[in-house]
Simulated assay, not measured.
Amino acid sequence: MRLILLLFLALSALTAPPAVACTGAEECPLGERAYHVREPDGWDGRSPLPVMLHFHGWGRQGETIMGHPRIAGATVPRGVLLVAPDGLGRSWDFRRAGSRDTPFARAVLADVARRYPTAGQPLIVSGYSWGALMAARFACEGEADIAALLLVSGAFPPSVSCDAAPVPARVSHVHGLTDGVLDFPYGPGGEDTHAVALWRARMGCDAPEARRFDWQAVSWLTHDRREWDCAGGRVTMDIHPASHLIPRGWFAQVLDEVLDAR
């Protein structure tokens, strides 16, 4: 009887369906917290994957990002693995150095590296609103080599200490002039690129802007682009007339620029 039971258990193990991978709406548990991941379209299960670590806005969770047309809609067709941690209380601890969320984000990346072939691939860190502030906090103390830091509607003032971490290869910021949630960050005398002052100083952008031009992803929203070529990489600032939002096509445009520069 015992032999029959053992044979039954062995057969059940062989015929049991594989464990469901944590993708999309299926969260990836990590200690007492969790994150979400979405694979790019057509991935063959073996090819190396660049990663975009995205910090959601206040009141959201990583699951929201997995179906977001302006975020996932940009990573999925471009061969980028989208990773979105869950903030405690649907928020982030970004105001001071020593954030509890920085080691968590590092642990998320380590767990992703165990599941996916990401070693040696570009790490893109992004965030929206309070998530942009958390992305900046992670860049300032995350001890990670960041290929690009993409910040939407959330900016650290230049007084924030950000000297210990590696310098990102690129920083891109976008902000709306009529933002009523996190006001457009004008500098002294109404200077309108104050949002990237921290990064320009950090990356050695001593020269004036190298280029300025307008571009559109949709006909109803024009971005005023400023670009600086710096000792440590490139800084860009996109200014638009709308409010507190992720502009349609912005992530797609900037990801194309980042990936084409590889």
Score class of each variant (00 low, 15 high):
A21T: 05
V51S: 00
P158W: 11
A107M: 10
R212S: 07
A136L: 03
V171N: 11
T178L: 12
A169Q: 09
T23R: 08
P168E: 02
F104P: 00
L53S: 03
A16H: 15
L7W: 06
D101C: 13
P157C: 08
E39G: 04
R200G: 00
A72G: 03
T222K: 12
A135D: 01
P241W: 14
H54G: 06
F8A: 13
L7E: 12
P158V: 08
I65F: 09
F8P: 07
T178Q: 15
P48Q: 13
G204H: 09
T75I: 09
Y128Q: 09
R46E: 15
S172K: 00
I239K: 07
R96N: 10
A136Y: 03
A217F: 01
A169I: 08
V174S: 00
L53P: 06
S153H: 01
D111I: 05
V181F: 06
R90S: 09
R90P: 03
M52Y: 14
R38G: 07
P166A: 11
V171Q: 09
P185D: 03
C22P: 09
D86P: 12
A25C: 01
P85V: 04
A139I: 03
E32L: 07
S159K: 07
G131H: 11
Y116F: 15
R38S: 10
A110C: 13
P241E: 12
A147D: 11
G89D: 08
G120R: 12
D111N: 15
R114C: 05
Y35W: 10
A139K: 10
V80M: 06
Y35M: 01
P29C: 04
L82M: 08
G89E: 10
G89H: 06
A148P: 00
L81P: 02
R2W: 01
T222I: 06
R46F: 13
V37E: 04
G180Y: 11
D111T: 13
A144P: 04
L5H: 14
P69V: 01
G31N: 05
V258P: 08
L255E: 05
P18D: 02
P50A: 10
G45N: 11
F184W: 15
R234P: 00
A207W: 05
A10N: 06
F94C: 03
G189E: 12
Y35F: 14
R248V: 11
P241G: 02
A210Y: 13
D93E: 11
L151N: 00
A165E: 06
H223R: 01
G154H: 01
G98L: 09
G154P: 04
T236C: 03
M1I: 12
P117G: 08
S12H: 10
G79T: 13
L11P: 04
V181R: 04
F138R: 00
D145R: 06
G187N: 07
G190L: 05
S12F: 15
I71F: 11
L133Q: 08
P29Q: 14
F213N: 03
L177C: 01
A195W: 02
P166S: 13
S172V: 13
S153R: 04
P85D: 07
G233P: 05
I146G: 02
I65R: 00
T64M: 09
T102D: 00
E191M: 08
I124Y: 12
S153Q: 03
L49V: 14
G87F: 06
P208A: 09
